[in-house]
Amino acid sequence: MKDFDRMMKAALSEKVWDVEPSEQMLANIRKEADERRKENGFMKMNKKKMMTAAAVIAALSVTCYAAGQLHSVVSHGSPNIETFAELEKAEKKLGFDAKYVETFANGMTFHRGGTGETYGMDEEGNKIGKKYKMMTVSYADEKGNEVSLNIDGGSPYADTGVEEAEGYSTNTYKFVPVDYKLTEEDKEKEAAGELMISVGSEEVEVKQMEYYGWNDEGIYYSLVGFDGSFGEEAMAAMATEIMAQ
């Protein structure tokens, strides 16, 4: 080893020889890791509903990828409310009046709900911008159809000057685990706008997503359904029922 290299190595070791980790460090790590697991825990408990939210998020993030630092929008919450009466109590925590119904005219009935937060993230996964309170309400019918209503007190996308999509749209989504390697076909379809990739599921699933979004006095609403079982007319009718509240 040359003198310079030897000197560099010794000098760097000398500079930090007295820097020691604290005695509480291991306990702090475990505590912090547990808290983060709890924050994200509901995602594992209620995969299908989170997939619904994730699909909306992914759809919007594709639209807004180039909007400055904002790379994606994430909603965190606990869909642990099982009665409509509890949901109405939880609404008070939001700080804004949310519109929703217990039962739609087409028979879709309240199934589960929860509150949480929506915020933006940069490409490295750091939270950026304002956080907004959100509420999610899931509805189901006897045939097994499901639709989620997501209500956000604000929009990280709108904060960057990019308005969220309104009205009806439909997309094919492929939900993949974090370690999934995109196939050539995936890449081609994604590039052509025929496929949206949403990372973070436990297994690979392809779903047809229906989306109907609108803004009502600064509150952002979206209805999201899977498997294409509703159609534009039915989604618009449900949205109209909510707007009329």
């Binding site: 760097l12 500079k15 930090v16 820097v19 020691e20 980790p21 604290s22 460090m25 291991l26």
Partner: peptide
Amino acid sequence: QKQAVRTAALITGDAALAE
């Protein structure tokens, strides 16, 4: 643990931040 906190101290130049 030691290598981590010392490397962080060298990169950040701040022993408190290194923890």
